[in-house]
């Protein structure tokens, strides 16, 4: 059974069509990324999947059930955008209520609350009120509530927005650690982060599902992404284009070059590149197989 199925899914808000004829099927497993510019319809899609709103047209199913169905209670969880806990009650009280509603006994709910807070590195905040936490800590507590009872599907809307790099990394590690137990669908603008975490990437723009790509795509091997520290951009481009196996070179941003090449002997191109850098005394920062997610999504090449 598919984890998520959307058939001709559309959502209209007044005169604005936030989602337009979205069709997709997602299976359980590796984390799935949902990307797109502001207003692309990511949060609308999340809200439809969680059953917070109803589709204008089309249908959506999670594990074969409509969102909000009693069969899904406790199996689907989410970090909704802009949702906050009750500022008048301590965090433990609220998370324990959520756990009890999912079927935990009072004692087990206390333990589960401690477990999920420990997962996000905040076991000490249990007796505090949400108003005493920073934005980043609140976000981590909200992620903790989504992990109560290890649900089968967790939807995370911008989980690392507003987090410092160390905590963003901790959240990535946390998601990675739950793979196998839980499938995550993560909406984010941070493409580098999604690249590290997800295989399947869904790209929404103006309410339309434009692309669905795999980072592990075999075609990725035909590309090298070169990031330089110091070089003459024009000279480097010319030198790269002169190499026989290179089909094209594109510089998507300063000091970054995407090389499309014909695969020949193992590491032949890489060896020639290092020889070139050595001759010209150019310093490179990174050499990556395949293209970056950003290049895949936004390049027409």
């Amino acid at each position: 059974m598919k984890l998520i199925t959307c058939k001709a899914l559309s959502k209209q808000f007044g005169s604005k069509r936030a989602l337009n004829d979205v069709n997709l099927e997602l299976s359980a497993g590796e984390p799935i990324a949902l990307v797109g510019p502001n207003g692309a319809g990511k949060t609308t899609l999340f809200s439809l999947l969680c059953g917070y709103i109803r589709p204008t047209e089309g249908a959506v199913e999670i594990l074969g059930y409509a969102p909000g169905s009693p069969a899904l209670l406790g199996k689907v969880s989410a970090l909704p955008q802009d949702a906050r806990l009750d500022p008048n009650l301590i965090i433990a009280t609220q998370l324990e209520l959520f756990a009890q509603l999912q079927g935990f006994s009072a004692a087990a709910a206390r333990q589960e609350c401690q477990r999920v807070l420990a997962l996000v590195g905040l076991p000490e905040v249990a007796p505090q009120k949400p108003s005493s936490l920073s934005h980043g800590m609140s976000k981590r507590v909200s992620i903790a509530q989504a992990l109560i009872g290890s649900p089968e599907l967790v939807l995370l809307d911008e989980p690392t927005a507003g987090l410092d790099p160390a905590n963003a990394k901790a959240i990535r590690e946390l998601v990675r650690g739950q793979v196998g137990k839980t499938t995550f669908v993560i909406s984010s603008h941070n493409l580098a982060e999604l690249e590290k975490l997800c295989d399947k990437v869904l790209y929404l723009d103006k309410g339309i599902l434009n692309q669905s790509i795999s980072i592990q795509d075999d075609l990725a091997d035909e590309y090298l992404t070169l990031t330089m520290q110091s070089c003459d951009d024009t000279a480097l481009t010319a030198a790269l284009e002169a190499l026989p196996q290179v089909l094209s070179v594109k510089s998507s941003q300063s000091k970054e070059f995407v090389i499309h090449y014909q695969i020949t002997a193992s590491f032949a191109l890489e060896t020639e590149l290092f020889a070139l850098f050595n001759r010209q005394d150019w310093r490179y920062r990174a050499l990556q197989r395949g293209r970056t997610l950003e290049d895949k999504l936004f390049s027409q090449a």
Partner: peptide, 14 residues
Amino acid sequence: ARGSFRFLTLRVSR
């Protein structure tokens, strides 16, 4: 107003 319902409706029916 604060969106706390979104946490609850994933655990109990409306």
